[in-house]
Amino acid sequence: MSDDLEPLAPADAVDLYLDSRRDDAAAWTVTSHESRLRPFVEWCRVEDVENLNDLSGRALYQYRVWRREGNYSGADVEELAPATLESALTTLRTFLRFCAQVDAVPSDLYTKVPIPDLSRSDEVSDSKMVPERAPPIMEYVERYEYASRDHVILLLFWHTGCRTGGVRALDLGDCDLDSENPGLSFVHRPDTDTPLKNDEKSERFNRVSGEVAQVLRDYVDGPRVEQLDDHGRAPLVSTTYGRASQSTVRETVYKWTRPCFIGEGCPHDRDPEECEATAYKKATGCPSCRSPHDWRKARVTKYRNDGVPRSIVSDRLDASERVLDKHYDRASKRKRAERRWTEISQA
Rank of each mutant, 00 (worst) to 15 (best):
S209W: 07
L170Q: 13
T94M: 15
D12G: 05
S314M: 09
R204N: 04
D3P: 07
D19P: 01
G263A: 06
R290V: 06
A147Y: 00
D230Q: 13
V14H: 03
P267C: 10
D193E: 15
E6M: 10
P182D: 14
L177F: 11
S320V: 01
L177T: 07
S35R: 07
E321D: 13
F157Q: 10
R224I: 06
G307C: 11
P272C: 14
S87K: 05
Y303T: 07
A26C: 03
E142C: 01
A277G: 11
T257K: 04
W295S: 05
W158L: 09
V167Q: 14
C266W: 02
S288C: 12
S345T: 10
V215N: 00
R310A: 13
V237D: 14
E226I: 04
A25H: 02
P10H: 07
L5P: 00
I137P: 00
V105R: 04
A337M: 12
E47D: 05
I262V: 13
D76Y: 02
G173N: 11
I312T: 15
R330P: 00
D230T: 10
P309N: 11
C99R: 05
E251C: 10
T31G: 09
S179F: 06
R336W: 04
D103R: 04
C289Y: 02
V253M: 13
D24Y: 01
E200G: 03
D191Y: 07
L85G: 01
L52W: 03
G242P: 08
Q346G: 11
R270K: 14
D230M: 12
E145Y: 06
K333S: 12
R189E: 15
E69Q: 06
V105M: 08
R207V: 12
